[in-house]
């Protein structure tokens, strides 16, 4: 397939160790121009490390990377001229106002002040921060800071945007707003590489995604395909201690997690009919989703 021909970003056999632990252990990925690609994985899976490798901020122990046609890390700096980054940890400049943050950041790209000044109104509009142009960073809410970080990442009109957990810690309103903005960028033809812990976010935004765990890819594909491939279409969650009952024959697969029984079924009619008779039971019937895939493939035990 001509995937690599159109690849905006590609990596093969990527490896990185810290001490004895191999944090990225042979990862391959390729992003096609204009797509939104999601990198998912539990805490410590190696997502941020992968992004740092792709940006040339740390040297890989093995593998090759090409970003916008340039080899990384050798030409990473040149490649970053056309890349925008929203890091996981906030790095806005607390000594500056909103506008100054954009101005100073634009200078790091070698842009002239008048070029940056000309872009600032559109960037503030994009981030819905028009009224906050002269506000200090500490006066901004979490959502505003995140939007400003996104606007800052756009100051150089990048072709590719890296977003490391852009919506973590945001309320639903702010998250929806972020999603709208990212869709707008995709509409403009930008390529996005996103990490997130919100499966809903990945399902809504990403054309394709890669689930990684302990530094290796567990699966990759379009969200819908992954769900269809790994999980039965219906999920019935039954709550309570006394459910051990005879659901077994009525679904393809079931899983007991604490006091909840998850039943996965191609056709849930009989199961639901039976549950309706046991009116003391609380249960929820829903379509299967990406979270089911994620938990099936990466397990349910806590990390760290």
């Amino acid at each position: 397939m001509s995937l690599n021909a159109k690849a905006v970003l590609s990596a093969t056999g990527l490896r990185k160790s810290y001490g004895a632990s191999e944090v990225v252990a042979g990862l391959d990925l390729a992003l096609v121009s204009g797509e939104c690609f999601g990198l998912l994985g539990p805490n410590g899976a190696g997502k941020t490390t992968t992004l740092r490798l792709l940006l040339g901020l740390t040297r890989p122990d093995g593998g090759t990377i090409s970003l916008l046609g340039l080899p990384v890390p050798e030409k990473a700096r040149e490649a970053r001229l056309k890349v925008g980054v929203v890091p996981q940890v906030d790095s806005l400049d607390p000594d500056f106002t909103v506008t100054e943050n954009l101005l100073v950041y634009g200078r790091y790209f070698g842009l002239k002040d008048h070029e940056i000044q000309a872009r600032i109104p559109a960037l503030l509009e994009f981030a819905e921060l028009e009224g906050k142009a002269e506000a200090s960073i500490e006066s901004l809410s979490g959502g505003m800071k995140r939007r400003l970080t996104l606007a800052r990442a756009l100051v150089n009109d990048p072709d590719v945007i890296f977003l490391d957990e852009p919506t973590t810690g945001l309320d639903p309103q702010a998250r929806h707003m972020m999603w709208q903005r990212l869709r707008r960028l995709l509409g403009e033809g930008k390529t996005i590489l996103l990490t997130t812990h919100f499966m809903e976010e990945a399902e809504r935004l990403c054309d394709r995604l890669l689930i990684m765990d302990k530094g290796v890819a567990v699966t990759t594909g379009a969200p819908r395909d992954l769900i269809a491939e790994h999980i039965e279409p219906h999920v019935v969650e039954i709550y309570g201690d006394e459910v051990k009952s005879n659901c077994a024959g009525l679904c393809q697969r079931q899983e007991q997690v604490g006091e909840t029984l998850f039943c996965y079924a191609a056709d849930p009619h009989d199961l639901l009919a039976q549950l309706q008779q046991q009116c003391e039971l609380r249960y929820l019937h829903r379509p299967s989703n990406l979270e089911d895939v994620f938990l099936k493939l990466t397990g349910r035990e806590l990390r760290e």
Binding site: L57, R77, S91, Y108, F109, N156
Partner: peptide, 14 residues
């Protein structure tokens, strides 16, 4: 503390 250098390194600075 402020991660100012990190921000610079995400831009095309070494």
């Amino acid at each position: 503390v402020q991660k100012t250098w990190d921000a610079m390194l995400n831009a095309p600075l070494e």
